[in-house]
Design a protein around this nucleic acid. Sequence first.
DNA 1: AGTGCGATTGACT
DNA 2: GTCAATCGCACTA
Length: 193
Amino acid sequence: MIRRLKRSELPEDTEALARYLIGKTVVHKAVSGRIVETEAYVIGDAAGHAYRGPTPRNHSLFLKLGHAYVYVVYGRLKLLNVSSERAGVGAGVLIRALEPIEGVAIMQRRRGTSQLRDLTRGPGCLTVAIGVSMRHDGVDLCNGGPLWLGSAAKPAGPIGISVRIGLTREAHRRLRFYERGNPFVSGPRRLNA
DNA sequence: AGTGCGATTGACT
DNA sequence: GTCAATCGCACTA
């Protein structure tokens, strides 16, 4: 059974949090998914949105561990992150892919497809499927609210590590984590060995 | 005040 | 495999 994760259970360190979240769950009301792919955007990371200091857009990255940072990219896609580190430090973990658990019919309706594999594979897809929007930017994921992090639905399998996807800066850093062999992991085949 | 550009997706060859 | 869509925001002036 899935239970709410307490803030004290989450590793404060960004890279440790990214690894820790593999196999855990994201729950939004009646819809949930198992996290199978993450990326760490660490302290002092030139590829991170917090790199040049706080702005109205990246404010949530500076909240204490366990808050949502949601932002829009390419003018239409919402991406979900979990803030890491202490309050005032800008860093976080991008949730890149989920394995659907509950609310599959709702996800199918929201995504406009019945293909299970296409529901939550990719960071811009999963936010649509679980109904995350800009309203959730800055919300606390550990305070009993409708959007929360849950315990592992089943233990994580072997963890793979690769470079992060789609970056131009800091492109060599191996800060992407995924469950090996899981069909819901996004990204090119060569990175998912 | 104007401009350039993404932590991607999906349609098309 | 290639490539356009799309717009809020940070950066320059």
